[in-house]
Design a protein around this nucleic acid. Structure first.
Length: 587
RNA sequence: GCACCCGUGGUGAAAUGGAUAUCACUACGGUCUUCGGAACCGUCAUUCCAGGUUCGAGUCCUGGCGGGUGCACCA
């Protein structure tokens, strides 16, 4: 139980005691301006209309029922605001009697502002030292599958994959913090015409004995080009495609198998460098077979024939008609996704939710998948959730793109890493540490720039800004963490005191909002609330740092300040971890 | 054409229907004998248009305008 729930209960009782029928939910929120108090209730405005009263009068009646009116200095600060002192113990909330009192005032058109007292904040600081700090129980005992990073094998990992992985992996961490037992899945594309193109080109170029990722990338680009230009090549590639689908024993199939294994290892290495290890992988080859079986089973009742293909009449559901099995008898990606649903349930059921993390462009595709899948098994539609992120575009600089026009993930990371390295040239750090730190900072700059935006909106990666590492950036937050550690390292011993003589600093109040940020991210399926939170925490800490000499033993609040610093460091580290960003001790 | 997403200072973003719309970048000015300046403080500048719902709208509804994406054998 936190302060929010406690205050809500007290307010509900006060509204009832004031003679109002509780027909609207009582609502409280953090005022935008912290000087208005810690919580604000806006419900008096809603109740006023219904009861034909002035909102301020409603607020007054409610406040009078919360405690006894006492004169207080705050009322002098805000003219016209009546201030009361609530004695929380009066309400006999024994389990959280640590909340002793709070100040309440009426302001504006009828807001009820609540300011928690110092004692509350002192006790609150202790919470950050518990093992459960940084977790919430929103989805306790639930089991979710979260699928992200669906790379095409035979194609290098590009920035689209990097973005997808950042969102997917971050959401996995946030779900875990929300109490969820997560199974992190990948669904790589290991079959389809694109792959046949690459296999053809590998053989054509004589790279079928041995190849590296550079050659795979070139083969894919070359095969795609020739497929369009040369009808003979098109015929050959279509044949190779059949060979792969039918698993026909041949040299082409051997090259395919060899390439698949190679590319899969490459993919695993790539995601490992950015912090992801999948619990399981489901392949398109598996899902295509099962999906086709299911589509054929439901011919007539769900699917129908049209122009030699098997289609689903999505247009009957406000979507569009689409091909599930093409004229050649191969399942399209819709069918593969139907098969994927079957495999998910086959392997992991029972579970509570199956989450897909994909690009926005796929949104309508997945509406079709959910609709058609739901016809086969209603649970497939009901338990599936779809998170769609935006696309990454670039501004203020160029990223090399070796093939086509999509830059590779490796190249982008390397480019940012080089910039970090240059920035670190004058730092007094051992060379091998510099490399490690440069990597952490580079990945942080990239991931944070993706995740600070609401999932679903397109993102702009601006080199000039992102490489300056100033302001609202991942490195700024990492730097703030380094500051906290640097201070703590200077201090050999400090008491466990939460006592404070002065005002409770904003930074201490911000700490309490960490669990709220996690809950919001879970609720909106978007990590940006956590990103926003760690940034704001870093900001208020830096202000605190600028005006307070923390490592000053002569300060009567020395122990308190140090404990706040410790809590900030821990919270920044945990918050960044939820975004898949590591901290460094120095940078 | 139909469907989906988006429209907030010069730029990039934030804001469960609540108070004076917040933050970063840029520009300009300041802090600077420091617990690490990748920092802090200050100044300038914003909700696409028209209606509607509401005590209250950047947020919800309707209609425009603008941008992006998807619409059958690619994934």
């Amino acid at each position: 139980m936190n302060s929010k729930e406690t205050i809500l209960q007290i307010l509900e009782k006060a509204f009832a005691d004031a003679g109002f029928k509780l027909d609207q939910e009582i609502h409280i929120e953090h005022p935008q301006d912290m000087s208005h108090g810690d919580w604000a209730c806006t419900s008096a405005l809603g109740y006023a209309k219904k009861n034909g009263l002035n909102p301020r009068e409603v607020a007054k009646k409610v406040v009078e029922n919360m405690g006894s009116v006492v004169p207080h200095s705050a009322s002098e600060k805000k003219p016209g605001a009546k201030v009361v002192l609530i004695n929380f113990n009066k309400y006999k909330y024994d389990e959280h009697s640590f909340i002793e009192s709070a100040e309440v005032g009426i302001a504006g058109p009828g807001f009820i502002n609540i300011t928690l007292n110092k004692k509350y904040w002192q006790q609150q600081l202790l919470k950050t030292q518990e093992d459960t700090w940084g977790t919430v129980e929103l989805h306790k005992d639930e089991k979710w599958l979260i699928e992200h990073t669906q790379p095409n094998l035979f194609k290098p990992f590009h920035i689209g994959h990097l973005v997808n992985n950042a969102f997917g992996n971050s959401f996995v961490q946030i779900a875990k913090a929300g109490g969820v037992d997560v199974i992190e899945l990948s669904f790589p594309s290991d079959i389809g015409p694109g792959i046949a193109k690459a296999v053809w080109a590998l053989i054509e170029k004589g790279w079928d004995k041995e190849f590296d990722i550079e050659q795979i990338g070139q083969a894919y680009a070359y095969g795609s080009g020739q497929y369009k230009e040369d009808p003979e090549v098109k015929t050959k590639i279509d044949e190779i495609n059949k060979i792969i689908y039918n698993q026909t024993e041949s040299h082409e199939y051997d090259v395919y198998l060899k390439g698949t294994e190679f590319c899969l290892n490459y993919m695993k290495r790539m995601v490992a460098t950015i912090g992801t290890t999948f619990d399981d992988i489901i392949y398109e080859t598996e899902s295509e077979i099962k999906g086709k079986e299911l589509v054929k089973e439901h011919m007539g009742d769900i699917f129908e024939e049209s122009e030699g293909a098997i289609i689903f009449r999505g247009s009957e559901y406000g979507l569009y008609d689409s091909v599930f099995i093409n004229g050649a008898g191969f399942g399209t990606y819709l069918t593969k996704d139907i098969g994927l649903m079957w495999h998910k349930w086959d392997r992991f059921a029972p579970f509570d939710k199956s989450v897909y993390v994909t690009d926005m462009e796929q949104k309508q595709h997945f509406q079709l998948v959910a609709k058609a899948g739901g016809k086969i098994n209603t649970e497939w539609e009901e338990k599936s959730s779809f998170i769609h992120h935006g696309r990454l575009t670039f501004a203020g600089g160029k990223v090399s793109s070796r093939y086509g026009n999509v830059p590779l993930a490796e190249d982008l990371i390397a480019q940012v890493e080089t910039a970090v390295f240059e920035k670190m040239a004058e730092r007094d750090l051992p060379e091998q540490d510099k490399a490690d730190v440069a990597r952490k900072v580079a990945i942080s700059a990239l991931r944070y720039s993706f995740l600070k935006t609401t999932a679903g909106k397109n993102m702009v990666f601006d080199f000039e800004k992102s490489l300056s590492f100033e302001g609202n950036s991942g490195p700024y937050i990492q730097y703030t963490y380094v500051r906290t550690q640097s201070i703590l390292n200077k201090i050999s011993e400090v008491g466990q005191s939460e006592e404070i003589t002065g005002e409770v600093p904003e930074v201490a109040k911000m700490l309490e909002r960490f669990p709220e940020a996690i809950e919001k991210s879970l609720h909106d399926f978007s990590p940006h609330h956590v990103a926003q939170y760690v940034y704001e925490l870093a900001q208020v800490f830096n202000s605190f740092y600028a005006e307070t000499k923390i490592a000053d033993m002569a300060n009567p609040d020395f122990a308190y300040n140090v404990n706040v610093t410790k809590a900030v460091g821990e919270t920044l580290q945990k918050g960044l971890a939820l975004l898949g960003i590591e901290t460094a001790e120095r940078m």
